[in-house]
Protein backbone atom coordinates (compact mmCIF):
# COMPACT_ATOMS: atom_id res chain seq x y z
CA UNK A 1 0.00 0.00 0.00
CA UNK A 2 1.54 3.23 -1.11
CA UNK A 3 -0.33 5.64 1.12
CA UNK A 4 -2.40 5.08 4.22
CA UNK A 5 -5.96 4.87 2.93
CA UNK A 6 -8.13 7.68 4.21
CA UNK A 7 -5.28 9.31 6.07
CA UNK A 8 -2.78 10.28 3.48
CA UNK A 9 -2.62 11.48 -0.06
CA UNK A 10 0.12 10.62 -2.50
CA UNK A 11 2.38 13.67 -2.66
CA UNK A 12 5.74 13.67 -4.39
CA UNK A 13 8.40 16.28 -3.80
CA UNK A 14 11.34 17.00 -6.08
CA UNK A 15 14.00 18.80 -4.09
CA UNK A 16 17.38 20.12 -5.08
CA UNK A 17 20.21 18.64 -3.09
CA UNK A 18 21.87 21.86 -2.02
CA UNK A 19 19.11 24.06 -0.66
CA UNK A 20 15.70 22.52 -0.27
CA UNK A 21 16.78 18.99 0.56
CA UNK A 22 19.04 20.59 3.15
CA UNK A 23 16.12 22.71 4.32
CA UNK A 24 14.03 19.57 4.77
CA UNK A 25 16.92 18.06 6.73
CA UNK A 26 17.11 21.20 8.85
CA UNK A 27 13.39 20.92 9.54
CA UNK A 28 13.98 17.32 10.65
CA UNK A 29 16.92 18.22 12.87
CA UNK A 30 14.75 20.95 14.41
CA UNK A 31 11.94 18.39 14.93
CA UNK A 32 9.47 20.61 13.07
CA UNK A 33 6.55 18.20 12.78
CA UNK A 34 4.99 17.83 9.36
CA UNK A 35 2.25 15.76 7.72
CA UNK A 36 3.51 12.33 6.58
CA UNK A 37 2.07 12.40 3.06
CA UNK A 38 5.10 13.80 1.23
CA UNK A 39 7.78 11.55 -0.29
CA UNK A 40 10.91 13.35 -1.39
CA UNK A 41 12.97 12.59 -4.49
CA UNK A 42 16.41 14.16 -4.39
CA UNK A 43 17.84 15.75 -7.54
CA UNK A 44 21.05 17.75 -7.84
CA UNK A 45 19.34 20.95 -8.96
CA UNK A 46 15.82 22.19 -9.60
CA UNK A 47 17.08 22.79 -13.12
CA UNK A 48 17.49 19.03 -13.46
CA UNK A 49 13.73 18.60 -13.20
CA UNK A 50 12.10 17.82 -16.47
CA UNK A 51 8.44 18.94 -16.44
CA UNK A 52 7.79 15.46 -17.78
CA UNK A 53 8.55 14.09 -14.30
CA UNK A 54 5.76 16.20 -12.86
CA UNK A 55 3.19 15.35 -15.51
CA UNK A 56 4.15 11.70 -15.35
CA UNK A 57 3.70 11.66 -11.57
CA UNK A 58 0.30 13.36 -11.77
CA UNK A 59 -0.91 11.09 -14.56
CA UNK A 60 0.27 8.06 -12.61
CA UNK A 61 -2.00 8.92 -9.74
CA UNK A 62 -0.01 11.32 -7.56
CA UNK A 63 -2.39 13.69 -5.78
CA UNK A 64 0.14 16.46 -5.69
CA UNK A 65 3.66 17.38 -6.76
CA UNK A 66 5.82 19.89 -4.93
CA UNK A 67 9.07 21.19 -6.38
CA UNK A 68 11.51 23.19 -4.32
CA UNK A 69 14.88 24.68 -5.18
CA UNK A 70 17.35 27.29 -4.04
CA UNK A 71 16.16 30.86 -3.93
CA UNK A 72 16.67 32.61 -7.26
CA UNK A 73 20.20 34.06 -7.46
CA UNK A 74 21.39 31.59 -4.87
CA UNK A 75 21.69 28.48 -7.04
CA UNK A 76 24.56 26.14 -6.26
CA UNK A 77 25.03 25.87 -10.01
CA UNK A 78 24.69 29.62 -10.50
CA UNK A 79 21.63 29.66 -12.73
CA UNK A 80 19.87 26.30 -12.65
CA UNK A 81 16.87 27.60 -10.75
CA UNK A 82 16.29 30.37 -13.29
CA UNK A 83 15.74 27.69 -15.91
CA UNK A 84 13.65 25.78 -13.39
CA UNK A 85 11.48 28.80 -12.69
CA UNK A 86 10.56 29.21 -16.35
CA UNK A 87 9.94 25.56 -16.94
CA UNK A 88 7.91 25.06 -13.79
CA UNK A 89 5.77 28.13 -14.36
CA UNK A 90 5.10 26.99 -17.91
CA UNK A 91 4.31 23.52 -16.62
CA UNK A 92 1.79 24.94 -14.15
CA UNK A 93 0.13 26.99 -16.88
CA UNK A 94 -0.16 23.93 -19.07
CA UNK A 95 -1.63 21.56 -16.50
CA UNK A 96 -5.29 22.50 -17.21
CA UNK A 97 -4.66 21.63 -20.86
CA UNK A 98 -4.02 18.03 -19.86
CA UNK A 99 -6.98 18.03 -17.52
CA UNK A 100 -5.05 18.43 -14.26
CA UNK A 101 -6.05 20.92 -11.61
CA UNK A 102 -3.06 23.31 -11.36
CA UNK A 103 -3.57 23.37 -7.59
CA UNK A 104 -2.06 19.89 -7.58
CA UNK A 105 1.32 21.37 -8.42
CA UNK A 106 3.31 24.05 -6.65
CA UNK A 107 6.91 25.15 -6.83
CA UNK A 108 8.75 27.14 -4.21
CA UNK A 109 12.21 28.13 -2.99
CA UNK A 110 13.56 27.05 0.38
CA UNK A 111 17.17 27.44 1.49
CA UNK A 112 19.11 24.95 3.56
CA UNK A 113 18.71 27.10 6.65
CA UNK A 114 14.96 27.58 6.34
CA UNK A 115 13.69 24.59 8.29
CA UNK A 116 10.71 26.43 9.61
CA UNK A 117 9.78 27.67 6.18
CA UNK A 118 9.98 24.12 4.88
CA UNK A 119 7.61 22.95 7.61
CA UNK A 120 5.17 25.67 6.56
CA UNK A 121 5.47 24.83 2.87
CA UNK A 122 4.82 21.13 3.48
CA UNK A 123 1.95 21.78 5.87
CA UNK A 124 0.26 24.26 3.54
CA UNK A 125 0.71 22.18 0.42
CA UNK A 126 -0.53 19.01 2.11
CA UNK A 127 -3.61 20.88 3.34
CA UNK A 128 -4.15 22.20 -0.19
CA UNK A 129 -4.03 18.68 -1.62
CA UNK A 130 -6.40 17.36 1.04
CA UNK A 131 -8.92 19.99 -0.13
CA UNK A 132 -8.97 18.37 -3.57
CA UNK A 133 -10.64 15.05 -4.43
CA UNK A 134 -8.29 12.07 -4.68
CA UNK A 135 -6.55 11.98 -8.03
CA UNK A 136 -7.48 9.43 -10.65
CA UNK A 137 -4.84 7.66 -12.61
CA UNK A 138 -4.85 8.27 -16.29
CA UNK A 139 -5.83 4.64 -16.79
CA UNK A 140 -8.85 5.10 -14.51
CA UNK A 141 -10.10 8.29 -16.14
CA UNK A 142 -13.83 8.24 -16.98
CA UNK A 143 -12.99 10.15 -20.14
CA UNK A 144 -10.85 7.27 -21.23
CA UNK A 145 -13.76 4.89 -20.66
CA UNK A 146 -15.95 7.20 -22.71
CA UNK A 147 -13.39 7.19 -25.48
CA UNK A 148 -13.31 3.43 -25.42
CA UNK A 149 -17.08 3.23 -25.70
CA UNK A 150 -17.01 5.56 -28.64
CA UNK A 151 -14.74 3.01 -30.19
Amino acid sequence: MSVLEGKERRIIGFLCNWCSYGGADTAGVGRFSQPTDLRIIRVPCSGRINPLFIIKALLSGADGVLVSGCHPRDCHYAEGNFYARRRLEMCKQLLPAVGIDPLRFEYTWVSASEGQRWQQVVTDFTAQIHQLPPALRFSESPDLELLRQCG
Binding site: P44, H76, Y77, Y83, R87
Partner: peptide, 9 residues
Protein backbone atom coordinates in the same frame (compact mmCIF):
# COMPACT_ATOMS: atom_id res chain seq x y z
CA UNK B 1 29.66 19.85 -12.13
CA UNK B 2 26.73 17.48 -12.47
CA UNK B 3 23.81 19.89 -12.20
CA UNK B 4 21.77 18.16 -14.89
CA UNK B 5 20.51 21.31 -16.58
CA UNK B 6 21.50 19.86 -19.94
CA UNK B 7 19.66 16.65 -19.15
CA UNK B 8 16.37 18.47 -18.63
CA UNK B 9 16.97 20.58 -21.74
Amino acid sequence: QGCGLCNAT
